[in-house]
């Protein structure tokens, strides 16, 4: 498994930047820079080679620059489809705004909390449920809830808005899974990515995470606790993917079943409004619902479906479904003459 730029640590340590201890820091650096013997041959030579596709599953550690080249090669060869592209579709007609996804995410990912969480700009939340209104007066007013995880934008060739601006390579688009990573120990808190993210999914840790006495017992070792001064965001529960892959490996299997890797929010949703899976696998429910057009950056062929800020071209992998036109139109900015509601 290749993620970010390395996958040689035991699962718990390779999760989103390791545990944060000094030994992990060193490991991070080693993965990034001290991999001379594991370097891929120059991709430009590979380009002309006939055997290239066989190497796609290669999990060699690469430097950030090599990683980008690697992605470019994949794209040019048009083999990205062989990779996984995890995405999510949320049925807004089923979502009741109950908040289970938010709490499932917090509990799964060791999200911290403070005494006052009502300033939502400071509130660390990976999954946030927005309340949309149609703006009409009583009694024609309507509301709709919209859960918003990280969109894991593919943009063009994996140049997600946040990935493009990160000076520390703390965030990266993984061509194998389509997941945008965040490595906390690399992040030094410049917050360029927060400015770049069109969806405001990224949050900065302004404060030390503090658990009341005894409550740190509920922390999961699968996800490292973030410290003050770094940016964090939804990972599509990447550690669950790693654990599932480990399990499959031990059982001698190459690939995962659809239900083996599901995010915490998908699993918890009491309304079953969230469907998660591999957009490149035609057998997965999400692909059948979304019917992505890979020629058009994954735009959905389902008339019920829409993505947030579709026209921005960030090509997010989170889709929404609604029968209501005003809900679908609230996903983007339209001029008054474009839309009549």
């Amino acid at each position: 498994m290749q993620f970010g730029s390395g996958g040689y640590l035991p699962p718990a340590h390779s999760t989103f930047g390791g545990c944060g201890l000094p030994h992990c820091q060193i490991a991070e650096k080693q993965k990034t820079y001290d991999n001379g013997s594991k370097k891929l041959p120059d991709p430009s030579i590979r380009l002309n080679g006939v055997n290239w596709p066989a190497k796609i599953e290669d999990d060699g550690a690469r430097s950030p620059i090599e990683n980008r080249q690697f992605k470019g090669v994949l794209m040019e060869k048009g083999k990205a489809k062989k990779n996984k592209k995890f995405g999510m579709v949320i049925d807004l007609d089923k979502c009741t705004g109950c908040g289970s996804c938010m709490v499932a995410c917090m509990a799964e990912n060791n999200v911290s909390f403070r005494e006052d969480e009502t300033d939502k700009l400071l509130s660390v939340t990976w999954m946030r449920v927005y309340k949309l209104t149609n703006g009409k007066p009583f009694p024609d007013s309507e509301i709709c809830y919209l859960p918003r995880p990280c969109m894991h934008c593919e943009a063009d060739h994996g140049h997600s808005p946040c990935v493009s601006v990160c000076p520390a390579t703390a965030t990266d688009y993984d061509m194998n899974t389509g997941i945008v990573s965040q490595i906390y120990t690399r992040c030094f808190g410049c917050r360029y990515c927060m400015a770049a993210c069109p969806y405001q999914v990224r949050v900065f840790n302004w404060y030390d995470p503090v658990w009341p006495d005894g409550m740190e017992k509920m922390l999961s070792p699968n996800v490292s606790v973030r410290m003050r001064g770094v940016v964090e965001k939804c990972s599509f529960c990447f550690h669950r993917y790693q654990l599932a892959k480990d399990k499959a490996y031990y059982e001698g299997r190459q690939d995962l079943e659809e239900d083996e890797y599901q995010t915490a929010c998908t699993q918890a949703c009491p309304a079953s409004a969230i469907t998660f899976g591999n957009l490149n696998d035609p057998d997965h429910a999400i692909t059948q619902i979304v019917r992505p057009d890979h020629q058009l950056g994954g735009r959905s062929k389902n008339p019920r479906a829409f993505r947030l800020l579709e026209r921005l071209g960030a090509n997010p992998k989170v889709y929404y479904l609604s029968n209501r036109e005003w809900v679908r139109h609230s996903g983007d900015n339209y001029r008054p003459d474009e839309v009549k509601l």
Partner: peptide, 13 residues
């Protein structure tokens, strides 16, 4: 960057 992040009080599960 390392020094400002390696707070000893950040819990390690």
């Amino acid at each position: 960057a390392i020094w400002t992040q390696m707070w000893p009080w950040t819990p390690v599960p």
